[in-house]
Amino acid sequence: MKKFAHDFKVVTNNRLNTRHFVLELQAALPLPEILPGQFVQVLVHNSPPTFLRRPFSIHFVDYAKNTLRLLVQVKGEGSRHMGLLQTGDNLNLVYPLGNAFSVPSSNKVLLVGGGAGVAPLMFMGDYLNRKNLRPDFLVGFRSGDEVSQIDEYSKYGKVFLSTDDGSMGEKGFVTQHSVFKQTPLPYDRIYCCGPDAMMHAVSKLAAEKGVPCEVSLENFMACGYGVCLCCIVQTDKGNERTCIEGPVFDAARLKWQSNG
């Protein structure tokens, strides 16, 4: 698949809460076909400590407006600088990178996300709707003040919510949500993105319930296009690159303990 490195223009920088914001970025050239699960590598200007690009899942693609959206959590200097971007500023992206979530054959699909890991699920929801499929979402946040965009997700499917402190939705981690207490689990496939520990826990639950599960990893990487070999993950085939063979992997193929 052809890849590009281009400047995008910031259309909006929408602050969701103290730690998260959504950038809507417009391409100068028509966007190529982009699939849910793919990511971009962002070059952060004017931030000397940020030497390498930063990988972000694609949160949404709007071909009519020729824009894509990134959901960003402020973690360090790079993301803090991205939070300062204003309408009209440029941001250089390498895109589209990585593989994609598989296309399910049935409606009975659960999309599980935690924190900023919910990012690719909105795009996946929209994509599935276009294929006349309506997924369920299970999204988890630290607390109620970080819960955001629920109305948006609801356009694409039913939304289940949990917060670690119980201030909104069910209390606890996503794996403790009543959705997972059903036997048998009424899903043919689970797609998951979030912190490593969450994805590991979800994939374990899915395996116990006999439901195939795909996870989207976010290993540290330098390049994002397969040459630095820094983002490797141990699978049943040995070391594979998160940026090329992933970021989406069949959870059953991963050797979780050795992932650091």
């Binding site: 630095c228 490797i232 070391n239 650091g260």
Partner: peptide
């Protein structure tokens, strides 16, 4: 197979691999 993950660190004006 190479070394175990993590294999890189971002450093001032550079990186370790």
């Amino acid at each position: 197979e190479g070394n175990k993950y993590p294999r890189m660190a971002e450093t001032p004006s550079g990186m370790l691999n």
